[in-house]
Write a protein that binds this DNA or RNA. Structure first.
Lengths: 206, 206
DNA sequence: TCAAAATTTTGAATGCCATTCAAAATGCAC
DNA sequence: GTGCATTTTGAATGGCATTCAAAATTTTGA
């Protein structure tokens, strides 16, 4: 059926190799974790050889980095929706935190973040993509905050600074959630982040 | 000179094997990073064999975990000094943050934290020690805050909650500093943490 | 339509590493 | 001293990312 799959013989060319590999990598990471996912296992999942995966990506580090980027890109529409939703900015901050945080323990996107952090000093190339992905979150958070500022919801606050602080806090909570620190939950983290935001942004009740 | 080293022949028994190994591990981690430090290299540094290191620690994960604990324990006196220093609690918060944060890029203690995070799901035993070490920071921060609260420095605030939030934020900054995110510095992070603390804890200027 | 060139794919080395383990060396108790 | 327990060694073992030369396939250009 699928175009190009042809004549019942062994198919050789992969269809959209990168896409397929990234998808398979994501699943494998969700199952085993980044360190435990082997090139051989990933290859098996897309029906090819370990050497071939590296032909496309060059190294396991690159595979994981591209998988991180790929999983981050899937979050862009949700953030855009949040930014265009209208309504109070403050009321949208919990949802922003919800998008930022892992879905729960072993969320593959966040497993990748933590893994990649641990490899960045050894492989400096990893840092650039991270900075890029982080900047996207920063920009969107600042944009959301600016909506609130323009609407007069907030006290006069440096929004850039607040974004840096809130995201640092969210990184800390995310790490705890994804590695399964007992008691670390999405709900609790969202509550903490929201409480911080209210306190930092809302004009003092005077 | 050193006692027990004796008669110019090959020394066999190590003196305080754990101590020596932990010290050597710390140095090796500072040089290569936790992932790149091999059992063979660590063994070479203490003049023994790779198998012997594992005789003492059981696994590389354990070596790294114990090294983390060891490096954390070296911070206890500094924290205790801070707690007993007297004076305004708020004024001591920047110093607390300074103790918490990495000394700079590639600080081995923080390389270990990040590394261990990445292995916790695969090796759940790692979680317990982390929780213990984290609790020590939490307790000391809360103790410091309670001094401030008793002295009437602060608005009525849930100190436990604040400690959770501030440490999450510091974890985020620490990660950035240790992996060398451009622009992430101790000084900037201390300033952020301090600004947050002032805003969260001090009574509104009314 | 075909052959040469370029690209993709394979899978067998390679080399590194943590871990295991049986044997050897050493220390200790009596 | 002798026997037992502990420590230490270093040679396997098995798993892994990575390399690479050869094979298969597709594309190009006439």
């Amino acid at each position: 059926m699928a175009r190009g799959q042809a004549r019942g013989t062994v198919r050789r060319r992969l269809e959209r190799p990168r896409e397929q590999m990234l998808e398979a990598a994501m699943e494998a990471i969700a199952e085993y974790g980044p360190a435990e996912m082997t090139m051989a296992e990933l290859a098996r999942r897309v029906g090819t050889s370990g050497g071939h995966v590296l032909y496309y990506f060059g190294s396991k580090d690159q595979v994981l980095l591209e998988t991180l980027r790929w999983s981050e890109e899937k979050h862009v529409p949700g953030r855009t929706a949040l930014l265009t939703a209208g309504g109070s900015a403050m009321d949208r901050i919990p949802a922003f935190a919800g998008l930022y945080l892992p879905e729960g323990t072993a969320d593959p996107r966040w497993l990748l973040w933590v893994h990649v952090w641990g490899r960045t000093l050894a492989v400096p190339a990893l840092g650039e993509t991270q900075a890029e992905l982080d900047l996207a979150w920063h920009r969107d958070l600042v944009a959301l905050l600016e909506q609130g500022a323009r609407a007069g919801e907030f006290a006069p606050v440096d929004l850039e600074d607040f974004s840096v602080r809130l995201r640092a806090m969210l990184d800390g909570f995310s790490t705890q959630i994804v590695i399964g620190v007992p008691g670390a939950t999405r709900e609790g983290s969202i509550a903490h982040a929201t409480a911080y935001a209210r306190q930092a942004l809302l004009p003092s009740p005077a």
